[in-house]
Nucleic acid binder design. Structure first.
Lengths: 327, 327
DNA sequence: CTGAAAGCGCTTACAG
DNA sequence: CTGAAAGCGCTTACAG
């Protein structure tokens, strides 16, 4: 039913080989033949079967993209840029929403391997999802260090943490608290925390970090934030490790009758389009999401082309402080 | 280098046929053989090549998903649900960000056809991107009517528009203006507008709709909103056709010293997780995004299974008014 | 219960 | 400049 190369060949009065050569612009072909073939393809609405091509070429031009969830504006924006850039380079993207769950991630990796993806871009905390069976699979980690063999692209989280904390200090906050996600590993969010703690110490202040174990349950996040205010009524500055968290802090502060920025100053992290549109007043550290996407793809393509030696192990892109009305 | 079925066969001391049968649980196989085969697969880390399988089966378990852009929280959330549900049903999702551009959409459709996707879920205004060559391709449209042959899933945009407008009227707004995206076609956003206009007339009021031609350029949107205030200083109620637009209205109103909700009441549309977190005070019409995703997939799978007759042509899911502090 | 053969739609040496 | 043959990794009748 679907037209195939042999159908085209029959109509054009040539062999499948010739049709294939026209398709791939390979070898010498008389103009007449070429035109006949094109005409035949038009006539029966022929489109090459990329599955069959991939099987032969051992190249799918498919990239797997593992993110926690695209409904989070940061990942949604990252996914948008990654896919757009890939499309412009003739790569296709298989989307995988892992919710940061290691079981899902492992299944996704296996799925991607079975589908012969040329490479994977992964945003995950979890180590060990790329192991023995995926040794030869080109991988780039975004925002998280995974293992020695896997290049990492992230923004300058340490500097971001520094700038956020220093801003609060320069605005005369006396009691600055940091709220962060799960702090298990040497993730970038952890660098933000380290920077916060170092700067605080540098200024002779006691760092206080609250950890939110579950990134996906808003209620748990709200409870933790509420606890911050209960346990530290003196708090007058909060550095939240992402904008959504910062928004929850804003909401809780308002509920408690705190005036922002007078009583409480808040700095977020990420600076996505969505958060800058929906909460434009938020002071935040903006990540260069498009550059992260571009860089991750550049590196992945190098890996795919086998240029291991030229692949940098770690790339750190500059962030930008966006001052709004919450500081 | 990658293990293939014949490698497994050699190690297990059986034929490729037998390995395939073990893999697919097809036909009778002695337990001993089965275990030998499994052992061999483990030993050389064998994973079936789904590309080769697809070629034979003429079934890829691939779904194409065309959305304007996942950085927009509505589409990011929709993409998340669609992909998650697909994954649970053993379908994979090729992500396509079209920016609503018909040229990109046509290219994506061709790409999806070449990649032999089993079906497509599309969110697009543009008619005619599925034409002759894609006749037999199962498609579901989300949020936009595309053509007679293509089932459409959307939420009850008319009711949403009604409820939004009626709320503003019930809160005593005298001069209610509607701001909408491009109004070219019978898109759902257009139903929101129609509902607004009908309700206004019903109450003996003059409907005024501003159209924003470009959905992606925040500055154009800001300019239009600014014009609304310039041209209608009396405005005391605004129904914006999505939450991001509503957020821009909030910002502009604040800039102009209008107090919300006292001087101006605002209702948005979508009610995504992101907008409800970042701008929790916004009154909005919430779309049942997960149900939309689930329903679209249900219908698509029916189409794929060839159950054309059982496929409803149009499904309309209930929306929900979320009252916040902007009304 | 198991295997040899043919074929899914394509491409690339090889030969002419 | 063009075609017949073999093969990418798999699966399924068919035969035993």
């Amino acid at each position: 039913m679907k037209a195939k190369i042999s159908d085209v060949a029959k109509i054009a009065g040539v062999s499948p080989t010739t049709v294939s050569r026209v398709l791939n612009n390979r070898g010498y072909i008389s103009n007449e033949t070429r035109e006949n073939v094109y005409k035949a393809m038009k006539e029966i609405n022929y489109f090459p079967n990329d599955i069959a091509r991939s099987l032969f070429n051992k190249r799918t031009n498919l990239i797997g993209m593992i993110v926690p969830q695209t409904s989070n504006p940061f990942f949604g924006e990252l996914a948008f840029h990654i896919e757009s850039i890939c499309a412009s380079l003739n790569y296709k993207v298989l989307l995988c929403n892992s919710l940061n769950r290691i079981d899902k991630e492992k299944k996704y990796v296996e799925m991607l391997i079975r589908n012969q993806v040329d490479g994977v871009i992964a945003v995950t905390y979890n180590r060990g999802i790329f192991d023995s069976e995926s040794q030869s699979l080109p991988v780039v980690a975004v925002d998280h260090y995974l293992s020695k063999g896997i290049p990492t692209v992230s923004s300058d989280n340490y500097s971001g943490g520094e700038q956020a904390t220093e801003l609060l200090i320069s605005k005369d906050c006396k009691h600055i608290i940091h709220i962060n996600g799960p702090l298990k590993l040497e993730t970038p969010a952890n660098l933000r925390r380290k920077a916060y703690e170092n700067v605080m110490k540098q200024y002779g202040k006691q760092p206080i970090t609250y950890e939110i174990s579950n990134t996906f349950d808003r209620n748990i996040q709200r409870e933790t934030i509420s606890k911050v205010f209960e346990e530290h009524p003196e708090v007058d500055g909060i550095f939240a490790s992402d904008d959504l968290l910062a928004a929850l802090v804003v909401a809780e502060a308002q509920k408690r009758g705190k005036s922002i920025p007078k009583d409480l100053k808040i700095v977020g992290y990420d600076g996505t389009e969505a958060s800058q549109t929906l909460l434009p007043g938020l002071t935040t550290i903006q990540q260069p999401i498009e550059s992260i996407a571009q860089t991750a793809i550049d590196i992945l393509l190098k890996e795919i082309e086998g240029e291991f030696s030229n692949v940098p192990r770690e790339i750190c892109l500059p962030i930008k402080l966006l001052e709004g009305q919450t500081t």
